[in-house]
Nucleic acid binder design. Structure first.
Lengths: 217, 217
DNA sequence: TCCGTTACCGTACGCTGTATATTGTGGATA
DNA sequence: TATCCACAATATACAGCGTACGGTAACGGA
């Protein structure tokens, strides 16, 4: 197999899954592929385009969400698949919203989403559609970034309880004990037992309801 | 003035405002401050903590949103101030959602937001509050990232129309002319004339309405 | 047999974050 | 006044990064 954009992207994704975006360098990727670093620049303009390649490969997975007849089911399927992808490839969430997604598969996903949303009640013209799409995308980007970040800190303070207890713990506890942040304190202490997927789904439904009910003329 | 965390943060912010996060290196920052690079490591553990410092300085501006008596007015004030900050300091949106915001000012803003939201109708227990806060924060993060990214690409294709026309233009037009993305094509062609702030505000209201109406038991 | 194309590599430059060691400088103490 | 300590500040150094540039080896067609 002589090397190709697809193979490069696949290997890059594997590396990034394990070591994160920061651990993915052109040099390491080239070594993993068994070639010299500069070889990659015959397939990709620069590192940034490499990331675009990886992102679109992930969108290809997302695009496999089968088309449903009901607009709501379609949207739900796409968004949940996006969440699955973000949890499988945490680096994906780092890139979410940070650059325009213009790859063919990203466009395909955008098309499916937009087409489905345009069928929703309460979405009347193209302006409504643009706004609704904006709200939905904003939620996806933000929710997934939040969830992944939470996951990472949870992991890093689980495997290294010492670090948490000695580094952040005291600082946070001291902060919360000042009494200046009572509500946050309550959230930290009493919260956190909510199921992540359920919360995500719940909030997604809330957004969709908000879009469709649409009380503003 | 002998150097301090505050001064370092202020200078770093100035630099990042002009050259972006990538253009902000420890070395350049030190040079700007008239000291050797290693001097900064007496005030900050590493570059990452420097970013945390900058972020919290921005939250300090946001926290100045005056407290209103109505919960909705409070939330609106905070969120709009956050948007202003993100547009003033575009790098801020790059960090949004990417790390936990635990600085004192970030906590203060979080407290105000949580306290206000807990007054909203439809937010009954701590679980409701956690979900509502999650939805709101997700929207803020995603919407601001989107808007800033859009802004940047718009700017880079405005000042360098050639680049747009020769690089992305043909590719995108070709893509859209394939007919595989009709809805996206309509959005690109007919859309884009919407006022950004208005759209943001509209969608924010939609989210808040969704949270308060809350049709799920 | 020669030539052009393609696949591939080695070297080099300027930049990054940061660990470690070294110097200058002021005030307190003997 | 001489000496020592603490601290501010720098200097040097290392490993890694993205990538510009120039070169080499294999190979298919003329």
């Amino acid at each position: 197999m002589p090397l190709s954009r697809a193979k490069i992207a696949a290997t890059a994704i594997r590396l990034a899954d394990v070591h994160g975006l920061d651990g993915l360098s052109v040099r390491k990727l080239a070594k993993e592929l068994g070639v010299g670093p500069m070889r990659l620049y015959d397939y990709v303009i620069n590192r940034s385009e490499l990331l675009d390649l990886m992102v679109d490969a992930v969108y290809a997975q997302i695009a496999e969400a089968s088309h449903r007849s009901e607009w709501r089911a379609t949207v739900l399927a796409i968004v949940h698949r996006t969440r699955d992808a973000a949890l499988d490839h945490e680096w994906f969430s780092d890139l979410l919203g940070g650059r325009p997604h213009l790859g063919p598969h990203a466009l395909a996903v955008g098309e499916s989403t937009a087409a489905a949303l345009s069928q929703a009640p309460g979405v009347r013209g193209i302006d409504d559609l643009q706004r609704a799409l904006g709200a939905l995308n904003a939620f996806i980007i933000g929710a997934l970034r939040r969830e992944v970040t939470e996951r990472r800190t949870a992991r890093s303070t689980d495997t290294d309880v010492t670090a948490w207890q000695t580094a952040l713990g005291p600082y946070l506890t001291r902060m919360l004990e000042t009494g200046r942040y009572p509500t946050v304190a309550r959230l930290v202490i009493d919260g956190a037992h909510l199921n992540a997927e359920e919360t995500f789904h719940h909030n997604l439904i809330t957004i969709l309801d908000g879009i469709t009910s649409h009380p503003h003329p």
